[in-house]
């Protein structure tokens, strides 16, 4: 029963995080909050991958001469690699999004989506 729970709960946690992030991305009017939601969403995906790489009774994927090279002894390294890449992608996206937000702020002095549009209409 407990095993069952342990086997399942990380996934539900991930889903909750994903939902929070997605909600932030689609429903928030403040652009910065959208960006934050995006980060949460991506982080949740990282967690999903990482927990999928886990293996009971295994250790970190660095070959330990005492343990030999038995696959059962080490966690699956591939999700880690993928997630390293995905993290970098996420950092890059966040960087670009911040640069965009900065330009928007400089042009319109606000980060509220509606106000930005109003400002733009006023200027036009």
């Amino acid at each position: 029963m407990f095993e069952e729970f342990l086997g399942r709960y990380p996934y539900f946690m991930t889903v909750i995080l994903l939902a929070i992030g997605l909600y932030g991305m689609v429903a928030k009017r403040n652009l910065l909050k959208k960006a934050i939601g995006m980060s949460i969403f991506q982080s949740a995906i990282f967690l999903f991958f990482i927990q999928g790489g886990a293996k009971w009774g295994a250790t970190v994927p660095v070959i330990d001469p005492q343990r030999g090279m038995d696959p059962a002894q080490y966690m699956n390294p591939l999700p880690h690699v993928l997630i390293l890449t995905a993290i970098v992608v996420s950092v890059a996206t966040t960087g670009v999004s911040l640069a965009l937000l900065l330009t928007i702020y400089q042009r319109y002095r606000t980060l509220d989506e509606k106000q930005v549009l109003e400002e733009a209409r006023r200027k036009a």
Binding site: L31, M38, F48, V89, I104, V116
Partner: peptide, 25 residues
């Protein structure tokens, strides 16, 4: 409004990329 349009695209594009990544997962 180009930066705002691009930002919206970025949010949706990242969402799209993440959906894809999740599917890959």
């Amino acid at each position: 409004l180009a930066p705002l349009a691009a930002f919206r695209y970025l949010i949706l594009g990242t969402m799209a990329g993440s959906f894809y990544l999740l599917g890959v997962g």
